[in-house]
Write a protein that binds this DNA or RNA. Structure first.
Lengths: 239, 239
DNA sequence: GAAGCATAAAATTTATAAATCATTTGCAGG
DNA sequence: CCTGCAAATGATTTATAAATTTTATGCTTC
């Protein structure tokens, strides 16, 4: 048995997915499952991903597995070493800093472009996205943190809506990728990071700045939002 | 035999690679070959990539082929349709515009950051990269255009060096990806685009601006460089 | 007789399994 | 500490099976 991870029982792995996959291909199904386990930290950074183990754990052949792993490699969640198989992409403080910095740069750029191209329809979309997010609890349990998948989904949609008006699909894709990789860091130190601040207020302030057409303030708030998230995680001694 | 593409002879495909592959894995070798054929336009935009045909043409099994195709899909050179296989990513004027715009944004950003973090070592690296590029002919044949792989390689290195000092590996990676996708457009209309202008002078002007620490001018020149390249291609009626 | 639709047949992609080849890794012996 | 062997693991091929899309066919209806 692989050290550092108790062999996931197929049924248990299945239970991670909130909704039935119902994806037409095995690869996509596997991709979703692996991605979820990667982001949640169930598959630990640096852990070796042996084909034999994966085939057993996820009950799949190697063709769809390799396919899914390759896609995840392109996203930076998995690392492929020549002739030495795959491993879960390791994490480091320096990478966290670099990803955060890059995300700040790109999202600042994207938000500027979006606000230059602002339309009533986009503003309404943003208001709706924020409204939904604000009405969803961050944690399923008020006492102790318990990840709320709905909140995570709405949070992601909110930030994507913010830059969706920038006019560049590639840029949005790059931002998404950075968001994914940073999401893993959030999850890894979630216990430490919660509930350290009022993210809801920060979101509200950003929306207000956008609606006020105050580009500099909106950009400043958004960057501080990401920077603070990173700072909290960087404080975590377990990283 | 598949219509629209003469069966690439293995030896001929091999000849496309400037250096012997010598890659340890079949996948990487295939990846390089496919990439070269994709960028060169030998594999035509929109063309279907049937496994049977590819296995025959590249003399490989489906495992490494699927692996290579998946990586290329992540880079936007190949498109994967659920249950309908792969096809060469189609091209369009609108995508060309979008890629160019995004590249201008990201490289402008990266160049600013690089110049903020300028060091003598970086400036020297840039001078060397430019020197090498300037001493290499654009075309192997002065009469009629004949692609010079050395020039292409050095050109790529020059532009990468320009932003290499930006401090963000992810950002450099994004720029690389955009460069690849745009390179394909250049190749597709190379006959039309050559020799429409003095790119060497443009490179020289950029280097001068960088060494003068004139950020605004350097960024302006670089963006115009990319925009003009796109404009020339957009004039091509064959696109 | 032509258009539309359901069904059947063919082609293709996707997935599994088994076997082979190549490389890395751990370990023993020098 | 280095060398070389052996076992483990990854990479690749081949063959085959299952699932899905595409194409062809024939029937009904207007």
């Amino acid at each position: 048995m692989a050290p550092g991870l108790s062999q996931p029982d197929p049924a248990e792995v299945q239970s991670l997915r909130m909704n039935a996959p119902a994806s037409s291909t095995r690869t996509l199904d596997l991709y979703d499952k692996l991605r979820e386990d990667l982001l949640s930290g169930r598959l630990k950074p640096g852990q070796k991903l042996q084909m034999r183990f994966l085939m057993e754990a996820y009950q799949a052949g190697q063709t769809p597995l390799r396919e899914a792993l390759n896609r995840l490699t392109a996203e930076g969640l998995v690392e492929a070493r020549e002739q030495r198989g795959f491993l879960v992409a390791p994490v480091s403080r320096s990478e966290l800093r670099e990803l955060t910095m890059t995300r700040c740069w790109l999202e600042a750029l994207a938000l500027r472009k979006a606000m230059e191209a602002a339309t009533p329809a986009w503003e309404e979309e943003l208001v709706v996205a924020h409204h939904r997010l604000s009405r969803t609890p961050r944690s399923l349990n008020p006492e102790q943190f318990e990840d709320n998948p709905d909140w995570e989904r709405l949070h992601r949609i909110f930030h994507r809506t913010l830059i969706s008006q920038c006019g560049s699909a590639p840029l949005i894709g790059f931002c998404d990728q950075l968001a994914d990789r940073l999401y893993r860091y959030r999850r890894l130190s979630i216990r430490h990071a919660f509930p350290s601040r009022k993210v809801a207020d920060e979101h509200q302030a950003i929306v207000t700045a956008v609606l006020d057409r105050d580009v500099e303030r909106a950009v400043e708030l958004l960057m501080r939002h990401y920077q603070q998230t990173a700072d909290v995680i960087l404080e975590d001694p377990s990283l």
